[in-house]
Simulated assay, not measured.
Amino acid sequence: MPTRREIAAFDDTPPPDGLSPWVSGSEDRHGDVAIAEPDPRWPKAFALIAGIVHDALGARALQIEHVGSTSVAGLPAKPVVDVDLIVADPDAEAGWLPPLLAAGFELRVREPWWQRHRLLKRWDPACNLHVFGPDASEPWRHRVFRDHLRRDAADRELYAAVKREAAAAANAHGETVTRYNERKEAAVRQIYARAFSAAGL
């Protein structure tokens, strides 16, 4: 388990020289960033995805969490369910990746230098599956942020406005989803600071 200091400190480790996190053919694409109004079906979509992952991995799925904006009632979001999956060793892909590929997921990102993170996608329902190990701090941050937004109406409303503004700007300039995320970053980290403080971190 990460320490309190690790949870509350952002990890901005860049790719080593000459390496890219994108798996061949899955690079970040340009296109409209669609922000949808809150949808009460998102929790049901998460439950379906969690069931698929459980069926595929069994005991290898140590934890499955609904995170991101679709996990917060009343918050607009890109209509893609974000899920954090904890496995014992993300680098030992032979133990967990083939069953997920067989279940309809596609590996899109592999970045072992950043918390041993992998990202898989699925389209029915639309899902980003983030794979981490038990020692990663990022899933803890995701949960702290989620739970803060569930409790704090002011920050929830602020984040909704920031998301809409960032999407409009990214779309106006034909930017990628990565650039959309960069446009939100300053406001997101301000909200994180309040979430960490509320959580005693």
Rank of each mutant, 00 (worst) to 15 (best):
P14E: 11
W22Q: 11
R150V: 13
A103F: 10
Q63E: 14
A9R: 07
K163N: 07
R151G: 15
A160H: 11
E182W: 03
P40W: 05
R108P: 15
F46H: 04
T178A: 12
L149C: 09
A102I: 01
D39M: 09
K44T: 10
L19R: 11
A45D: 05
A169Y: 05
D11F: 11
V83H: 00
L120I: 08
T178I: 03
E106M: 14
Y159T: 02
D124L: 05
I191W: 00
A50I: 00
D124A: 08
A167F: 09
Q190W: 01
R118M: 02
K44P: 01
P76V: 05
I52T: 15
K184F: 09
P98L: 04
A186E: 12
N181G: 13
W113Y: 07
D147R: 03
D28S: 14
K163S: 02
S69T: 10
E182R: 06
A9T: 14
K163G: 02
Y192V: 04
F10M: 08
V162W: 05
A198F: 08
I35N: 03
V67I: 02
R108S: 15
P125H: 06
N128D: 14
H66M: 07
R108H: 15
F196V: 01
E185S: 15
D17Q: 12
A169M: 06
A198V: 03
H173E: 15
V53H: 13
G174E: 05
G18Q: 08
E165L: 09
G18A: 02
K184I: 13
G68V: 11
K44Y: 12
P134S: 08
P139S: 03
E65I: 07
A50H: 12
M1Q: 15
E185V: 04
N171F: 08
V81A: 00
A59G: 10
L119H: 04
F145Q: 09
S26C: 14
A198P: 04
G133R: 06
P14G: 14
V72M: 08
V177Y: 15
M1F: 05
R5F: 04
W123C: 02
L62T: 00
D32S: 04
W96C: 02
S69Y: 07
V80G: 01
R118N: 02
L120W: 06
A160P: 09
L120V: 11
S20E: 03
A73E: 12
H142F: 12
